[in-house]
Design a binder for these strands. Structure first.
Lengths: 221, 221
DNA sequence: ACCTGAACACCGTTCAAGT
DNA sequence: ACCTGAACACCGTTCAAGT
């Protein structure tokens, strides 16, 4: 007999680690990382704040679980079909899309390494694809690392929530004259619009092409 | 008559924004971002914790000042002489070196944009160099953005302090069998050693070369 | 095993006040 | 203008206790 059956109202499901992590991520998505607290998490779970400490030793361990939850949301099936360089690009776009859904958790993803089995399997998929294009395993691993850090770094600058509180207005309306930054001024005059998606794709493909040339990668025929 | 002259002992210099930011950065470098607090900053400055609020509206604004302080420590004079691709590589290595000195502040650098004049001038240097190699201003700006986000993303994963508390041990000794990750296992067997500096240089030069080919960049002769 | 609740040692920031 | 100090509404985590 479960709790729901003995009592009339299904007040809450039994606690477990993945569910706690999901709830924590939902709170962070909704309110931001700074507004998140173990006490609010307890309230959202309709449980004493200390109850979560039975499943996670501390807040940091909970954050690790959140990062893994985000990684495992990546759909890696996209990286199979196409040419090697297209496969890499598609894979990294999939990773970017999964992470883009959680701007307030990006700083966690960027700084909390995860070496759990599910994430390693995720890495394996792309590394294996690169070796099939002619890279040595160690070379493939280095490339994947560079693709990943670029993706996360770009995403952080694009939509990442500022660590340490919301950003305020620029510290004074320092009107700087265009003569000090002529090239930047020229870019503005040329109608520069910041298109993060296009820019990411551009940078990603530049790196892919550069690696491809460096290592002589190509698909076997 | 300064405070030092009227009293026998020069207990502390007068407060000012840059000095406060430097002290805050020193505390963050020494103890970490989580251990940093406005109260400890006040203590380090030998002043009431609330005194800093006369120079910064809140902690977030202080963090912005810290990020700018780190950016302005970059030595941009290195980007002048060589070929365009060498100039870019040298510039980005200089940026990386400046940021590498502050692992606990990297998450701030990665997520708190700075648009103050000194930083824009920093950007101008590299953007201008790229236009001299044949890039349009808007293209140069996009490239610099990609170089920067890769550099910061790679650095975060390399030495960045975890946001949200120190990382604990992996959640259980999940011995995953090598058959699930054969390529990763092969890389380990091949004596893979993680060399962040070499890997960064490799990825950076791949991106530089890829962009160079894409835009047909070359130095004028 | 799983959850509670009080307690400890902290936080950032407000506000009114001092000089 | 520059700094103080009390007060408010919070934190994460410990510990002993309940079931």
């Amino acid at each position: 007999m479960t709790n729901e059956e003995t009592q009339g109202r299904p007040s809450r499901p039994t606690l477990n680690a993945p569910h706690i992590a999901q709830m924590a991520l939902a709170l962070i998505d909704a309110e931001g990382l700074d507004a998140f607290s173990m006490r609010k998490l307890g309230a959202a779970l309709e449980v004493d704040p200390m109850a979560v400490y039975h499943y996670f030793p501390n807040k940091a361990a909970l954050f690790d679980a959140i990062v893994e939850a985000i990684y495992t949301q990546i759909d890696t099936s996209v990286a199979v079909a196409a040419e090697w360089d297209e496969a890499v690009a598609t894979y990294m776009h999939a990773m970017r899309n999964a992470m883009r859904a959680h701007p307030h958790a990006l700083s966690l993803v960027a700084t909390r390494p995860v070496n759990t089995a599910p994430v390693l399997v995720l890495v394996e998929v792309l590394v294996a694809r690169l070796t099939r294009a002619g890279a040595a395993p160690t070379e493939a691993l280095a490339m994947v690392n560079c693709f990943g850090t670029f993706t996360i770094g770009h995403l952080l600058a694009d939509v990442g929530a500022p660590v340490g509180g919301p950003e305020g207005p620029p510290p004074d309306a320092t009107i700087l004259d265009a003569s000090a930054i002529p090239t930047l001024a020229a870019a503005m005059a040329a109608g520069w619009v910041f298109d993060p998606d296009a820019q990411f794709d551009l940078g990603l493909r530049a790196m892919i092409a550069g690696f491809g040339a460096h290592y002589g990668l190509r698909d076997p025929n």
